[in-house]
Write a protein that binds this DNA or RNA. Structure first.
Length: 479
RNA sequence: GGUCUGUUGGUGAAACGGUUAACACAUCGCCCUCUCAAGGCGACAUUCAUGGGUUCGAAUCCCAUACAGAUCACCA
């Protein structure tokens, strides 16, 4: 069997959007499932849209996601160059376009763009462009070119009959040829059109599976006409449904939607993002959702790609990110979280203890700061924060609880979560309270919050004996 | 407007003519519990856009309608 080769062919716009990343993921999975090659090709023929550093964003994203390409501008390979603007320099597109003319599959056209447009306006929907230049004799064409007249090369299309192709996800699609234009292959400035360059490159690079967004579904018959004109093999097509922002709009830069970079900045993990977007438009055959990249390679099946646009749900991504954080190997987790902890709390506390306290509570890294900021100092609060139904506490009761807590802790020699808890639980029993009645006021005294990450005793352990006692006294003074 | 494609709960989705229409997120309960989480348990679509067929039997097949998206460039 022929080796599978897929490609990711982004244009460097300086923004890796989620739909694009997913297309890259699918292309990668399709190749890797069968030990194929995944190729990166940069499509930068639109010089006007070129953005500084944009190519690096593409490299960085693929690297962060561990989507390793086998060939590309940075790695080289047997099918280079891998940057379209460089390929253009060798004149391949020009040559292939003219070859098609010689073969009688395309023709030179001198029509003015404005004239065609005017005609289109006049005739409306019934418009079908019949190119008078098709009838020109070879000699006349040559002469006009020699005279310096501008021209384009257009594909010949017979208006009769239909063209159909098979898409792996959408099935067989048939269109009438008369709806197909005699598309421009080579522009009057000598540059190829995107569609033409794409076909030439894919063929020259031996791409077996073309993976792209379903917005290309309508133009695929045109692509096939080019393949057929050359007598080339048509690749397998895998058109992916769009990733939507809501029912009506795709996720896009224009709408200010999150890019991959934005998600990273918010503290999402690349693996979680990848896992989540794999599930947008594709469903595994087993009842499972959490997959590593490797596992995705095995489980992925083109046949299970859906046909309808999927709305990007940040809440589910957030949940999944939390799953990744919780499932992480503990030392990696410490290292990952350490900078976030030290950034808001400094190095005066044991970062591992704090990391443990927030382990089950963090879904995205950017939440950490707010979660633990009270370790620096408690924010101001009203005394009615001590009113707690479940703990049956109120400010008055707190006035008697806090001194008891203080006394118990003051005499404690061993300072850790267990010893603190044991001492307070014993005290509670002695006084005839439920544990929570002792713990809740302590939590408030130490954190200034009604809700805190970790129990009161865990917080006390992290703060240390001295700071704990100090905060209890301060809290008493406020009452 | 022409052409192409699609339509299962708030969201992602499964189902390949016969099930009480999986599962996950979210939501809401309960349990656990020193708060909140995490974890456990449970609730949540009499119904698969609508209307017709075909069939003993339809979310699944066919046809119409509605709605949505894509595409109709010398842009990529």
């Amino acid at each position: 069997m022929q080796k599978i080769r897929t490609r990711f062919a982004p244009s460097p716009t300086g923004y890796m959007h989620i739909g694009n990343l997913r297309t890259a993921l699918y292309a990668y999975l399709i190749a890797k499932k069968d030990d194929g090659d995944f190729i990166l090709r940069i499509e930068d023929t639109d010089q006007g849209r070129l953005v500084e550093g944009a190519v690096d964003i593409i490299y960085d994203t693929l690297a962060q996601c561990n989507l390793k390409h086998d060939e590309g501008p940075d790695l080289g390979g047997n099918y280079g160059p891998y940057v379209q603007s460089e390929r253009m320099k060798s004149g391949i597109y020009y040559e292939y376009a003219h070859k098609l003319v010689e073969m009688g599959k395309a023709h030179v056209c001198f029509c003015k763009e404005e004239d065609i447009e005017a005609q289109r306006q006049k005739q409306g929907d019934s418009f079908y462009f019949v190119d008078p230049c098709k009838l020109l004799s070879k000699e006349e064409v040559k002469q006009r070119i020699d005279n310096g007249e501008e021209y384009v090369i257009r594909l010949n299309v017979e208006p009769e009959g239909t063209t159909s192709f098979n898409d792996e996800v959408y099935g067989t699609i048939t269109v009438e040829n008369k709806t197909l234009d005699e598309m421009v292959l080579l522009k009057s400035d000598g540059f190829p059109t995107y569609n033409f360059a794409n076909v030439i490159d894919d063929h020259l690079m031996d791409i077996t599976d073309v993976v792209r967004g379903n917005e290309y579904l309508s133009s695929t018959p045109k692509y096939n006409l080019i393949y057929e004109a050359f007598g080339w093999d048509i690749p397998r097509y895998i058109h992916c449904p769009p990733v939507m922002k809501d029912e009506h709009q795709k996720l896009s830069k224009r709408n200010g939607d999150a890019s991959f970079q934005d998600l990273m900045a918010k503290g999402y993990l690349p693996q979680a993002v990848l896992n989540y977007i794999a599930l947008l438009g594709w469903a595994p055959s087993e009842d499972r959702e959490v997959y590593s990249l490797e596992e995705l390679c095995k489980a992925f099946d083109v046949k299970r790609i859906g046909t309808t646009g999927a709305i990007f749900d940040i809440e589910k991504l957030t949940w999944m990110n939390g799953v990744y954080l919780r499932n992480m190997e503990i030392d990696s987790y410490y290292e990952l979280v350490r900078p976030y902890i030290e950034e808001t709390v400094g190095t005066s506390f044991n970062y591992k203890l704090i990391a443990n306290a927030i382990h089950d509570r963090v879904n995205i890294l950017s939440e950490i700061s707010d979660m633990i900021s009270f370790f620096n100092e408690t924010s101001s609060y009203e005394t009615d924060i001590y009113n707690n139904k479940k703990a049956k506490t109120d400010p008055e009761l707190t006035k008697v609880i806090l001194p008891e807590v203080y006394k118990s802790l003051e005499s404690l020699d061993t300072w850790n979560n267990d010893s603190i808890f044991t001492a307070l639980a014993a005290k509670a029993q002695e006084l005839g309270y439920k544990n929570i009645t002792m713990m809740y006021p302590l939590q408030v005294a130490l954190s200034g919050r009604s809700v805190a990450p970790g129990g009161a005793t865990a917080i006390a352990e992290i703060l240390g004996k001295q700071e704990t006692l100090k905060r209890i006294s301060e809290a008493q003074n406020r009452l």
